[in-house]
């Protein structure tokens, strides 16, 4: 039997993405690249990310990574988005190397959202 391409965590995040959707009135950023589309939105208060949401068109690893990133970034300082690196997500979700590019699109989207937030503050 060949190995399951998805870890239990990827399966769980993909099946129940609690941060799926958009945040009305929040800052937002979108990227369409490498065959995937990501749209992120965040509500920020006093420089802190209060809530994040995502929409994504892409493979299960991308959707799981977007969900995990949104959960991870809530409560963080918004400036941290500017330096966000997806390497930790790739490791924790066992993202196969051929999908690295797609997760880096997510990284770009998060950094782009960080710029939108810092520019409007």
């Amino acid at each position: 039997m060949s190995a399951d391409p998805y870890s239990d965590r990827v399966r769980a995040l993909f099946a129940r993405p609690e941060h799926a959707g958009t945040l009305e009135g929040g800052a937002s950023a979108s990227i369409d690249d490498q065959g995937v589309r990501i749209s992120l939105s965040a509500r920020v208060s006093d420089g802190q990310v209060e809530a994040m949401a995502f929409q994504a068109y892409g493979c299960p690893h991308l959707i799981a990574a977007a969900e995990a990133a949104c959960a991870e970034l809530e409560g963080r300082d918004a400036v941290e988005l500017l330096e966000f690196a997806a390497s930790g997500l790739m490791q924790s979700l066992s993202v196969p190397v051929e999908k690295t590019g797609r997760i880096l699109v997510l990284e770009d989207a998060i950094r782009s959202l960080g710029r939108v937030i810092t520019e409007t503050q």
Binding site: P17, A20, S30, R37, I38, S39, Q55, A56, Y57, I63
Partner: peptide
Amino acid sequence: RLRQLAPAA
């Protein structure tokens, strides 16, 4: 579900 999850093209 996947269409709801996806951003507008």
